[in-house]
């Protein structure tokens, strides 16, 4: 079964997502890293800024482009104890989107609050 993380030290990780899904592999790679990393019992948050907010857009339908609709996996993150999903309010607004357009519950942060969020982290991974 799952082994205990041998290091024993819990660190705070934030995954920062700045790219739209499907056009490049960044978004999928980020999500897979989060899911695999979740087995190590670390404190994990995700932050969506710039085009990264499109990753959480609801009603994605990828059948016609013959890609996997991995956006559905964002709804499974809770089961992996990844419960902190932050979205930058300005990035949504600039793109004509609001919280209602997103497929999961998120916490909105202002652009000016992003630094404070990052200052609380031990490790920053950017995709």
């Amino acid at each position: 079964m799952e082994e205990e993380y041998a290091g024993g030290v819990e660190k705070k990780f934030i995954y920062i997502n700045r790219r739209a899904p499907h056009g490049t592999v960044y978004a999928l790679e980020s999500l897979e890293t989060v899911l695999i990393g979740a087995a190590f019992d670390q404190d994990v948050s995700m932050l969506f800024i710039d085009d990264g907010v499109y990753q959480l857009k609801k009603d994605q339908s990828t059948d016609s482009i013959e890609f996997k609709n991995f956006s559905k996996a964002f709804r499974a993150l809770e089961m992996y104890d990844v419960e902190k999903l932050f979205v930058e309010a300005e990035s949504l607004q600039e793109r004509g989107l609001s919280e209602d357009d997103l497929l999961v519950d998120v916490e909105l942060v202002k652009r000016g609050e992003v630094k404070d969020l990052i200052d609380q982290q031990d490790v920053v991974l950017s995709f």
Partner: peptide, 8 residues
């Protein structure tokens, strides 16, 4: 610095 953030 306390951490590194690479803006890919």
């Amino acid at each position: 610095h306390d951490r590194v953030h690479s803006w890919l």
